Amino acid sequence: MTTGLAARADFLDWLARERRSSPETIEAYGRDIADLLGFLSAHQGGEPDLSALALADLRSFLAHRAAAGIGASSRARQLSAIKTFLRFLVRRHGLAPLPLGGLSGPRRKPPVPRALTEEQARTATTDSAENSPAMAARNQALFTLLYGCGLRIAEALALNLRDAPRAGTGLRVLGKGAKERIVPVLPAVEAAMAEWLRHRGPATPDAPLFTGAKGGRLDPGVAQRALRDLRRATGLPEHTTPHALRHSFATHLLGGGADLRAIQDLLGHASLSTTQRYTQVDQAGLLETWRRAHPRAD
């Protein structure tokens, strides 16, 4: 019989001595295992016998925690701690291994996107940390495109010269799953792009719209570093990333009264549930709400 309290003490000692886990980690693991053992004591009617543990017991424990109002993230973390504990018991105490791969934890809700304020978005699309005027123009054109049209970084960097956005003409974007969409283009996007193209110089229509220092298609990592440098130079928050500009596009449209389905179309989300992470709004026309809502539509 493998008793719970002795096994828990041995496990925490192993975490401290061999894994050299932090005191905070050890304390958290200790609480998680204690919760399990307390449940098993009530469930089995006495000192928990871990050698008799079954997957059904673990599922019952997770259901019990959910009924107690414990959130999905906390339950997922607790299940991870319990799996580590049970694998330790298999190695050190000869516990018969359980098919833990068949035990899936609660699904965590995707985090709510973190958007910039309108002032921060304007800083990200107009300021520069570059010494080279050409690279400064390129970065401003790219970041203005991400914010002004709600593009993913991969979608923007896949554009060719023939795709250079122009105000009054919809920009054709190839998104995830080869799904195509048309997004309106702000005058601010066209102006920033024109300045970059002036520095970029002429090329064939199928040449990359955004290029790196050596003339090839701009690498996403280079674009991310450029925004990181700008963030540090201007004091923008740490969550200022290329994807945050896309989130800001949607959030600011939503705040201006844009329809959720219109935002879904503009972002290229296959499911409305993905867009619903932002919130619910009333119905309105796609272009009409875009022109009325976007803070740089002037």
Rank of each mutant, 00 (worst) to 15 (best):
F210C: 03
A192P: 01
T204F: 12
F210M: 03
C149N: 09
S132F: 10
A136E: 03
A250K: 00
L146E: 01
A203D: 08
E155M: 14
E195P: 04
R198N: 15
S132T: 12
L145V: 13
T144R: 09
T204K: 15
L236W: 01
G177T: 09
P205E: 10
H247I: 06
L142M: 03
P165D: 13
K179I: 11
E180P: 14
A154F: 09
P133F: 12
P184S: 13
D259A: 15
P237V: 00
E155N: 11
L245T: 02
V222M: 02
I153Q: 06
L151D: 05
Y147R: 03
G201Y: 11
G215R: 13
T241Y: 06
G170M: 12
P242E: 05
A158K: 05
A178P: 15
P208E: 06
T240N: 01
A203N: 07
D206A: 10
A213R: 15
A226R: 00
L245M: 08
T251Y: 07
G216T: 10
L230Q: 10
E155S: 07
A167Y: 11
G168Y: 06
P237I: 00
G212V: 15
V173L: 08
Y147M: 07
R166G: 15
L157K: 01
R181Y: 01
A134K: 10
L230C: 12
S248P: 04
A226F: 00
H243R: 01
H252A: 08
D229S: 07
R246W: 02
I182R: 13
G255R: 13
R228G: 02
A154V: 10
L159W: 10
F249G: 00
L227G: 00
L197H: 05
L145Y: 08
F210G: 01
E238M: 11
L146D: 03
R231T: 01
R172K: 12
A136Q: 05
G216W: 05
R198G: 15
G170D: 14
A194P: 07
L151V: 04
G170V: 07
H243M: 02
G168V: 09
R231G: 00
P184K: 08
A167W: 09
